[in-house]
């Protein structure tokens, strides 16, 4: 087992180098063998999951990953069942779970909470999403799918569509692709939901080429990956803006016919109506494989960090 990640925190995908990503993906390939049968690699180890915000895929895949690796899971998926509702600080909650577990996975709406947890805990802390910028394990899953599909991530042309301002998977993916060469990003969003300036500044500094646009159509023939995020009505100050933009950010079969051959459609899920059900049956749809890959990828991560 690669020892480079042992005992480390994962707060941002940028905590991993390109070679560490390669090593992790190689182990994820191996872990696919154990995704159903399981191993006892992390026997007697305990994963604590603290989800202060709702999650389906991230939490369940982390928990399944730990169980498949022979370990055990404690934690909560609903903060109302913890003492945090009585005003207990995050720091105190972390200290307690630090003493019970071998690794902590946490999701919190407050930005920087994962880094605070990492400063307090002696065991590794894995960020399962905090604030609106970082979601490293989602990005690992996303990059792993692209690597599996194309055999490489270098030189891919990736469009990210939807609410780029508030979607942490979108900004996290921008950080993640900066570890690869020649990637070109197409950031497609309504004007009020454009990617944060500091993420774009980071892309520029990292030499990642990107285009910003409010429409996708003119790029359909160029892109290899269409990464869809959902527009959320509550994010718009004026609800009529939501109605105005919504239609332009729905994937249609007609669009797919005009797309570059072999283009894949990804989504971090859950989707609302931005990917209609009929898209599920097209050869372009990959979002279910993407979600399924969360298991071997998180198994690989846990085994490298805790193993």
């Amino acid at each position: 087992m690669d020892e480079a990640l042992k005992g480390r925190d994962l707060i941002s995908v940028l905590d991993l180098s390109g070679s560490e990503l390669d090593a992790l993906f190689g182990i994820a390939d191996e872990m696919k063998k154990y995704a159903k049968s399981g191993t006892d690699l992390l026997k007697n180890r305990v994963l604590a999951t603290l989800f202060f915000e709702p999650s389906t895929r991230t939490r369940l895949s982390f928990e399944t990953a730990m169980i498949r690796l022979g370990g055990n899971v404690v934690g909560f998926a609903d903060p109302s069942t913890s003492r945090m509702t009585t005003g207990e600080t995050l720091a105190d909650t972390i200290r307690m779970l630090d003493s019970y577990s071998n690794v902590i996975v946490m999701r919190h709406r407050i930005e920087g909470s994962a880094r605070l947890a990492a400063e307090i805990a002696t065991v590794p802390v894995l960020n399962a999403g905090d604030g609106s910028q970082h979601h490293p394990t989602q990005t690992l899953t996303d990059l792993y799918l692209m690597r599996s599909e194309f055999g490489h991530i270098d030189q891919l042309k990736i469009a990210i569509l939807g609410d780029l301002k508030q979607t942490r998977s979108a900004s996290s993916l921008c950080f993640g692709v900066s570890r690869y060469k020649g990637v070109k990003l197409y950031l497609i969003s309504p004007e009020p939901l454009k990617m944060k300036q500091e993420v774009k500044d980071y892309l520029e500094k990292s030499g990642i080429e990107y285009i910003e646009s409010t429409t996708l159509d003119q790029y359909l023939g160029d892109i290899d990956v269409l990464y869809v995020t959902r527009l959320q009505k509550e994010r718009f100050a004026d609800p009529s803006d939501y109605e105005k933009y919504r239609g332009s950010y729905i994937v249609t079969t007609e669009m797919l016919q005009r797309a570059k051959k072999g283009m894949i459609v990804m989504h971090h899920l859950p989707r609302i109506d931005e990917i209609p059900l009929e898209i599920d049956y097209t050869p372009n749809a990959r979002y279910f494989e993407q979600a399924a890959n969360g298991l071997p990828v998180r198994m690989a991560l846990l085994s490298m960090i805790v193993g």
Partner: peptide, 16 residues
């Protein structure tokens, strides 16, 4: 201090 009001470092009760 961080000017981001939603940053954990601006939460008064956390020991940070």
């Amino acid at each position: 201090k961080c000017p981001n009001p939603t940053c954990i470092s601006n939460r008064k009760n956390e020991p940070i």
